[in-house]
Amino acid sequence: MKRRDFLKGCLISGAAASLGVPSKSLAVGSFEGYPDAMGILVDTTRCVGCRSCEAACNKEQKLPEPDVPFDDLSVFEEKRRTTEKAYTVVNRYEAGDGKDPQFRKMQCNHCNEPGCLTSCFVNAYTKTREGAVIYDSKICVGCRTCMVACPFNIPAYSYSSAFNPVVKKCIFCYHTRLKYGKPPACVEICPREVLTFGLRSDLIKIAHERIRETPDRYIDHLYGEKELGGTSWMYLAAVPPEKIGLDETVGNEPIISNVKEFLGMVPMVLTIWPALFTGFHLLATRNKDHGADHHTHSEQEDGKK
């Protein structure tokens, strides 16, 4: 949280039209995650689409009853996304080239520097020391900028609630498990250890080790290691990421990097504009009484009517 507090401090001071501008722009986009943050390595080559993770998530997070049973595999006919009723979904992707279809679990990737968090104007999101991106529904206003900002289209919103609609997304089972050092429910139920739980730094090593040991099984890319400044959930795959619905065009910069050019400009405007325009005013009205006087002047003019 330190960094966020730092940003906060900088912007507050910026809003007060004072110092702190250069340091803020330096800080933006340089956060690489907490050292002891946990993560999940998703080895999509192991996934057979049993949907147990979906069931476990549903029970753990006390989500509403699903539309179809969790062992109904007809859901793979279409591509699904996370919803207010499902924090995680598994999709099937045709890999082509005579390869078997690939399955990929989809949930919040718990970015190191999350777009949702940086876009939230009430600071409802928190990146915990353990690596989870959690959400405080009590202060959420419901602007849904986080949903716009999420490059993975993860947060859902309980639109159907008239009086307490909130954002619904995977929270890494933070309150019930991660906080106590336990893996999330989906990891625990996964029969084939598609999901490996561990320190993010270790998982990166393990992933590259797997690629090195069985190069035929994987393409040489760990999605999420660098993407968007790094995510806590990372993906190994037999096919290029875009074949399993992972956007490769997101780049390695966190979302906030795109915004920093504007944020960097804010304190400048706040400090320079008043002087600049007051100066313009003095110039434009220099040949007569300036300031408040000119109003009385124009009033007199008007008054002649």
């Binding site: 912007l11 876009s119 939230c120 104007f121 202060i139 206003v141 909130v166 906030i256 944020l263």
Partner: peptide, 28 residues
């Protein structure tokens, strides 16, 4: 009309600050 909980609109002013967010600037 659009906000999920419009009665919380004053929150960014009084209760919870997310000053790194562009929307925070917009709100203020």
């Amino acid at each position: 009309c659009d906000l999920g909980q419009p009665w919380r609109l004053p929150y960014p002013m009084v209760l919870a600050y997310g000053p790194a967010a562009v929307l925070f600037l917009v709100a203020w």
